[in-house]
Amino acid sequence: MIQSINHQVIKVGIAELDIVKTPDTIRTSGLGSCVGVVLYDEVKKIAGLVHIMLPDSNLARAETLNSAKFADTGIKALIERLNLEGVQTFRLKAKIAGGAQMFKFTSAKDTMRIGPRNVEAVKKELQKNSIPIIAEDTGGSSGRTIEFNPTTCLLNIRTVNQGVMEI
């Protein structure tokens, strides 16, 4: 793909969120059980990405809440951030990736199932906000690095064993 000279890649860390406008792209690295949620407006070519660690803010036992860490509060915060940019919620579409189970354990402990639980929570929150999921690459046992391009609305996904794909 030909990229303009001013093209930037906006990096989103774990439990963080940010937004991107064409021609820039937005990226997060090393998703394991975490889920990367991309919300985008194809007309305005604006998108946001949140790197979620935990399914539910009710799990929080900290004094200060980092909303980007949880599926429920993270998606809400991302929608609000996009609203501030003049994007209307009903125009938003979603692409999601991540939620792997990196290690196979027999332990029934919930932490071990955190990937699938994160994916379920993300889907529930998106449904609550009537945001359709256009594409997803979730589950499995591989780490993922994802990059979204708001110009093409494609999500590029790189894994160690399966190479690169776009959804």
Binding site: I14, A15, S29, G30, L31, G32, S33, C34, M53, L54, L59, A60, R61, A62, N66, K69, A100, M102, F103, K104, F105, T111, I114, S141, S142, G143, R144, T145, V160
Partner: peptide, 24 residues
């Protein structure tokens, strides 16, 4: 112990889950 050959971030983040409920 479990074994994984993968991205460092994807591996180490599982150890941050328990901690992330109380801290950043």
């Amino acid at each position: 112990p479990g074994l994984s050959v993968d991205m460092f971030g994807a591996i180490i983040s599982i150890g941050l889950i328990e901690i992330s409920e109380v801290s950043d």
